[in-house]
Write a protein that binds this DNA or RNA. Sequence first.
DNA 1: ACAGTAATGAGATTCGTTATCAATAATACA
DNA 2: TGTATTATTGATAACGAATCTCATTACTGT
Lengths: 133, 133
Amino acid sequence: MKRNTWQREAVRTALGSNEGFVSAQSLHSTLRDTGSPIGLATVYRALADLAVEGEADSLQSLEGESLYRACTPGQHHHHLICRNCGLTVEIEADAVELWAQSVASEHGFTQPNHVVDVFGLCAECTAQVRPGR
Amino acid sequence: MKRNTWQREAVRTALGSNEGFVSAQSLHSTLRDTGSPIGLATVYRALADLAVEGEADSLQSLEGESLYRACTPGQHHHHLICRNCGLTVEIEADAVELWAQSVASEHGFTQPNHVVDVFGLCAECTAQVRPGR
DNA sequence: ACAGTAATGAGATTCGTTATCAATAATACA
DNA sequence: TGTATTATTGATAACGAATCTCATTACTGT
Ligand SMILES: [Mn+2]
Ligand SMILES: [Mn+2]
Ligand SMILES: [Zn+2]
Ligand SMILES: [Zn+2]
């Protein structure tokens, strides 16, 4: 049976208090900095579990690192992510869902999956990069 | 200045004779198996260069590995990839391009980028998995 | 309380990728 | 064509994210 430990809860809380996507390593550092003696392997396991249970979203950074974020459970959605500060907006895209389905079946593909992420500079970071322009 | 070496050409050729996405390691194995004494680091460098120059597409596998594929240069496009055999179809998705643009600007994001990949089982692999069903 | 066992965590290990750096070879030019 | 310049190569070391090992810990149901 699955057991409740303060470690899992600590990871859940730390993830929830974060605006954007974070890596297991940086989340572990954050927890350690706040005095938690949690182990790195436990953070990895907790994040993987949360992702399976639908409580966390995960994606691969452009460098191949796995990143996690507290997620609105239940509904399928995608993300608009600031490349600079990590600010993330959950977006729904019914049109894209349908498109993915149809393009797969048009080519005889079954059991379609898709990866859809939009990256950019958020309004705030845009203002910082081009001040007064 | 950039120099032409048989190593770069060998990587270009090997990549072009492959149907789907391949990793640097497996491409290196293939080249070695055909008698080429090319080094692993050189394969990594050649693939990275080809990707920058637009001659190769790259994506992160679900396990975080970087995969490469000879690419129709010039035009922006996405991929429909068989999870089982790697068969890849290049797809265009003007509607998705426009959607990505608009969803970014609606939230004040600039310089939008996007990652769009569709995975599934190709017709052939579907038939193998469910024979006669 | 106690037994059963899932969960933990320090450290070792795996594996993809990048850095090092001496040797090599492509290119420009005399 | 010969030579100097220097980009490129490749064996190896180094790096880093992620996973594995396994003895220890501590939930949970009874
Ligand atoms: Mn979706
Ligand atoms: Mn696109
Ligand atoms: Zn930002
Ligand atoms: Zn297939």
